[in-house]
Design a binder for these strands. Structure first.
Lengths: 233, 233
DNA sequence: TCATTCTATTTGTAGTACATAATTTGGAAA
DNA sequence: TTTCCAAATTATGTACTACAAATAGAATGA
């Protein structure tokens, strides 16, 4: 056992263990802070700190008088704080940007697994709106909606949550080039067509081409270690 | 402003804001708890709770006497607690399993970007060891090392950290079929050959085939919602 | 100069008291 | 009896205090 852990951290694990042993389910109420303090043999301050840590991870929620109740842990609950804190360094941002590109290309198989008409219709609707729009900001929003729909279509709820986070992150951080739409090799329309009658492999090839501007954009955003591209005009 | 936030949570954000405003860098020391307590106008208990939350997110580290120092936030720091807590439900596990498959297929471009000889040599070495081994457990370890090396080669440190977590998670959770090695369509050797002289597109196709057993395994692991595969023998 | 001990400082833990909010209870009015 | 409002209850939230533990850095000695 690592003994260099804080008592609060040890208590955090003890509580998790306690939860697992007692077979608590989502929605169940934990013992009150004072009771936990007695059960675990530590002061209430420590119990509170442990609970606070579990809260930030999304394990529990606490409400006055009601007590502490178990919630299903959301993996991205804590990540959100990091992403929105504005303290991420450029390397971490680059990593996230890359991960998103990987996911969009790699999700092809799962898109074809969950290829339901409602999703295809939604994609079609977005494309229709794109075709009658010239406003650049609107086009960006539609682009985000298109890709967001793909994430939804992947059937992976955690992934969808993650993507939503990234959207808010990169919306403020990584502004697009003005000509991003013009330069795209493969259109949303082509992607949809492949979704309808293609294969995961052909979709990956198409998506890679579709994202080509993003790959190039990435270099200008992150690879200039010397320059200071903090606020590109 | 959301006023339903706990003082500790508000303080957590205030501290983040304070860090951002003062331009603190990784490695810098924050003001001491008592000073922060004065600066922010809350008691030290609250400051400590806020710092504890930041600690679990990997924003800061604290050591006795040394004080609180900024560390570069590791996105996966908090996730680790969740993953190792044993409270993840099957849906979340399935999500993670899927994400890993997506990443391995989607990372192709980045592998080719960082195609250095040392990585290729490492992969070659693993393959050589595989060829002289018959022990099934050893082969599994080598398989993990092979894929782990790919993650390293992707040049994405966050991703590498994430993958390490998933390894420990699925090592205990998702045992492999005994015949996983036999059934593989594309060998590690072929993958390496493609890394040397192929393209990202051809690598993706090969990796998809290589992972085919995983895709099939996934169904038996997660899709039996009725059955209880908690402890498969 | 180097090793050792001491000291001052800072985080870690505990106990207590009170504030605050929400649930529950109890009583009064319809 | 039912409805509604108010007070009591109760659990979390905040604050203050005191002391323990650890350790960086100063002081001391060989």
């Amino acid at each position: 056992m690592q003994k260099d852990l804080t008592l609060a951290e040890q208590t955090e694990r003890k509580i998790l263990k306690y939860i697992a042993e007692k077979g608590f389910q989502t929605g169940d109420a934990l013992p009150k802070e004072n009771e936990l303090s007695e059960i675990l043999g530590v002061s209430r301050v420590v119990v509170r700190e442990a609970l606070s840590r579990l809260r930030i991870l999304g394990f529990v929620e606490t409400r006055r008088k009601r007590g502490t109740v178990l919630t299903s842990p959301n993996i991205f609950y804590g990540i959100k704080t990091i992403l929105t804190s504005g303290t991420l360094d450029k390397d971490a941002l680059k990593d996230l940007y890359e991960v998103r590109l990987m996911l969009e290309i790699g999700m092809a198989d799962f898109l074809f697994m969950h290829r339901e008409e409602r999703y295809l219709a939604e994609l079609q609707k977005i494309i229709s709106e794109e075709n009658v729009t010239t406003d650049s900001e609107m086009l960006t929003r539609l682009d985000i909606r298109f890709h967001s729909t793909l994430y939804k279509m992947s059937g992976n709820k955690s992934l969808f949550a993650f993507q939503n986070l990234l959207n808010t992150l990169f919306a403020t951080f990584a502004p697009r080039r003005k000509d991003w739409k013009v330069k795209q090799i493969i259109s949303h329309e082509s992607l949809l067509e492949i979704l309808r009658s293609g294969t995961p492999d052909s979709f990956r090839v198409a998506m890679r081409l579709h994202l080509n501007t993003r790959f190039e954009n990435m270099h200008t955003l992150f690879l200039d270690k010397e320059a200071t591209p903090a606020n590109p005009s």
